[in-house]
Write a protein that binds this DNA or RNA. Structure first.
Length: 421
RNA sequence: GGAGGAGUGGCAGAGCGGUCAAUUGCACCUGACUGUAAAUCAGGCGACUUCGGUCUACGGUGGUUCAAAUCCAUCCUCCUCCA
């Protein structure tokens, strides 16, 4: 294990797990964290009902923060979600209704609870909503107190603003204000909870540092910022997408099996980074796994997939997912955890077009999609390649266990079970 | 308020009266090779289809034409310059 240059447990962990990208004042922060229990927050926009793995590494930061004896705060941007964030996407994102946001906040708390312990204790996590202080703001007062401290000159230099302007894309005033409100959040967190520390992804650096500066200007507060490197694949693309879309952390939006498969299929070069960031395995153990070469890396990927799934969906779900993956890929048989549909026995007896089953199991998006799959030789029924578009299956195709296995390509499989009368 | 310019498939970006379901790149899917990896090569990439076709699409709505993404009118949105 490498000798840490940090005194505080937390920074030590962040360092060895690769979470440190930029920090406003490492020494100061290190010292602060050694003084006693601190609270730190990360902001999340409740713009969707779940988190995906793009959010996950920040949640892990909070997780470790709590493990190191501090208090994590999840800040819900209930107020800022009413305002579009000007980042990345060139288009202004649609405004959400307050009711949607409230539903999302509730749903998100469930997800966070898998990684953080909420409660009333000194190091228990808590969830706050910036709607509480943003909703009632008086415009004039706000401009005088907060707007005073921002120069447009500086705001224009921020990456999110610059790219928009450079590309001659519109940015509305409401979006332009986003960063001010985010900075103001830090001030409020400090005033209300004594929070001196904010973390986030490196894309949030500008916003976070705004808060640090605003706190100093308004309250002479000493605030700290830490960002983690954004997750990109070894080939440079942003991580977190699968064929179906985002890799959600909710089981009802993405099954544990698929979640497991996502991790199982990551690029070789990512395994070490991901193990450090998304599992709780001791670093020493991770270092051993990182040393694996060639085909052996698959072993590391299995561990990554298992550990990541266990953390998010629990031991049982992880074992089931792993067992299914093993059955499917190593034994060549079906596993119970595969996506399934049920089909009435009477319907099956009459014969069902294979094409329809592929659509119903969502292995393909449309009938035309299945036809293409068949033409390309990627469609299989019970591991036999489908060659005829009009091929049907009936009760005779059922395996002894009472299902039909469908495959789209080598990795995507689904089962159609007969519905017992 | 005035003058120009632009709105095309997930994104970028061609087309500017028929041969356009729309060039191309990225992304994505499948096949081959492999290690459920990467790279590479090949094919595919609106929906439905009795595979002959049918339908829906180029900001919205009307119109001209045998025929429109392409022309005209109008509305909406955005950009640039001027006041």
């Amino acid at each position: 294990m490498t000798q840490s240059k940090y005194k505080s447990d937390f920074l030590h962990v962040m360092e060895e797990r690769g979470f440190i990208n930029q920090c406003s004042d490492v020494e100061g922060l290190d010292k602060k964290l050694c003084e006693g229990v601190q609270s730190a927050y990360i902001g999340y926009d409740p713009t969707g009902p779940s988190l995906h793995i793009g959010h996950l590494y920040t949640v892990m930061m909070l997780h470790w923060f709590q493990q190191c004896g501090h208090k994590p705060i999840t800040l819900m941007g209930g107020g800022t979600a009413l305002i579009p964030d000007p980042t990345l996407k060139d288009k202004t994102r649609p405004l959400l209704s307050p009711a949607d946001i409230e539903t999302n906040v509730e749903s998100l708390k469930q997800v966070f609870s898998k990684f953080l312990t909420y409660g009333e204790g000194p190091t228990d996590a808590c969830m706050v909503n910036n709607y509480d202080w943003l909703a009632g703001l008086d415009y004039i007062e706000f401009l005088r107190d907060v707007g005073m401290h921002f120069t447009v000159n500086r705001m224009l230099t921020f990456e999110s603003v610059k790219t928009r302007l450079d590309r001659e894309l519109p940015m509305t005033f409401i979006e332009f204000n986003y960063m001010i409100l985010q900075g103001y959040d830090f001030v409020q967190l400090h005033r209300r909870y004594g929070t001196v520390f904010q973390m986030g992804g490196s894309d949030q650096w500008g916003n976070i540092i705004n808060g640090v500066e605003l706190g100093r200007k308004m309250d002479r507060a000493e605030l700290f910022a830490l960002t983690a490197p954004l997750l990109t694949t070894a080939s440079g693309a942003k991580m977190g997408k699968t064929e179906g879309g985002a890799v959600w952390l909710n089981a009802d939006m993405l099954s544990p099996y698929k979640y497991y498969q996502y991790w199982r299929n990551v690029e070789d070069d990512m395994v070490g980074t991901l193990l450090r960031r998304f599992t709780l395995l001791p670093v020493a153990e991770i270092e051993k796994l990182e040393a694996l070469q060639g085909q052996e890396i698959n072993e590391a990927k299995k561990i990554l997939a298992f550990e990541a799934t266990r953390l998010c969906h629990g031991e049982t779900a992880a074992q089931e997912a792993q067992a299914t993956a093993q059955n499917v890929f190593e034994q060549g048989v079906a596993g119970t955890d595969l996506p399934s549909i049920s089909i009435a026995e009477s319907r099956l007896a009459a014969g069902v077009f294979v094409i329809d089953l592929f659509v119903e199991t969502e292995l393909a998006g449309s009938k035309g999609d299945v036809r293409r799959l068949i033409k390309g030789g990627g469609a299989k029924v019970n591991d036999g390649t489908v060659t005829d578009e009009k091929q049907t299956v009936s009760t005779e195709d059922l395996t002894p266990d009472g299902y039909i296995k469908l495959s789209a390509g080598k990795k995507k499989h689904a089962l159609a079970w007969v519905e017992s009368p």
